[in-house]
């Protein structure tokens, strides 16, 4: 099994070092979140209602924009072929890449999300649920985004293409995650939303390796 652990180590170091690792993604989250209050002429107070939606938008975009290099680098330097000749099927390689990327970007983003939401005016009591929902939804974003990164392999302006092809697919986790946090903020029952969110992420966990591997093979052929 040392081959798989070596691959996991390789992907994690790659994701962590690649462009400052989590700093870049969290930096983007902060930038995206600070714009709406500055852009609103009714003063920051008026945006308390919008704190959660802004956070969710920034989280979705941050998850996507850090995915562009996930496969592109390996295609450029030729190691994508190497990864396909290894002991593990390509589906496993895609899943490991996605999970390694989540550890280096998705998890830190989930930690930053409650800070961002509360600073925008969301009730502090909702912070634990924001963290939980951001972790689960973040994994869903990363998995579906990984599929987008594989699809955009070798395409011009890959980052933009990932956003255009993947964002519509992120609507379900966005709706369920935002509903869960809104319910938690309003003291309501966040149960159903959370369950649906978990269901989506499990669905993405199943779909991404299959479709991702097919997309990588499409780019190799």
């Amino acid at each position: 099994m040392s081959a798989l652990t070596q691959l996991i180590r390789r992907e994690i170091t790659g994701a962590w070092q690649g462009g400052g690792g989590p700093l870049m993604a969290c930096g983007f989250l902060a930038c995206a979140a600070v714009l709406p209050p500055l852009a609103s002429d009714a003063g920051p107070g008026a945006l308390v209602e919008a704190a959660l939606p802004i956070t969710w938008l920034a989280l979705a975009l941050a998850s996507l924009l850090s995915l562009e290099r996930l496969f592109e680098r390996d295609l450029d330097d030729g190691s994508l072929d190497l990864l396909s000749l290894g002991p593990a099927p390509l589906e496993a390689v895609v899943l490991i890449k996605a999970l390694a990327h989540f550890l280096a970007n998705g998890a830190p983003l989930a930690l930053a999300a409650p800070v961002c939401a509360v600073s925008l005016g969301a009730p502090a009591g909702a912070a634990p649920m924001i963290l939980l929902a951001a972790l689960i939804a973040g994994l869903g974003f990363t998995l579906t985004g990984t599929l987008g990164a594989a699809l955009a392999l070798g395409a011009r302006r890959g980052g933009l293409l990932i956003a255009v092809t993947v964002l519509p697919l992120l609507i379900p986790p966005l709706i369920f995650g935002a509903a869960a946090t809104a319910q938690a903020a309003g003291g309501g029952d966040f149960g159903p939303a959370l369950i649906l969110l978990i269901a989506y992420t499990l669905f993405a966990l199943a779909l991404t390796p299959l479709a991702g591997a097919a997309a990588v093979r499409a780019a190799q052929g």
């Binding site: 599929l147 699809l151 395409a155 293409l161 092809t165 964002l167 479709a211 499409a218 780019a219």
Partner: peptide, 25 residues
């Protein structure tokens, strides 16, 4: 998204295979 993917990949054969994955997804 589907049409952007087809337009963004130059190699027609590869664009077709990637677009097929996105169409099915």
């Amino acid at each position: 998204g589907y049409m952007a993917l087809r337009a963004a990949i130059d190699d027609e054969a590869r664009a077709a295979r990637s677009a097929a994955v996105l169409g099915l997804v």
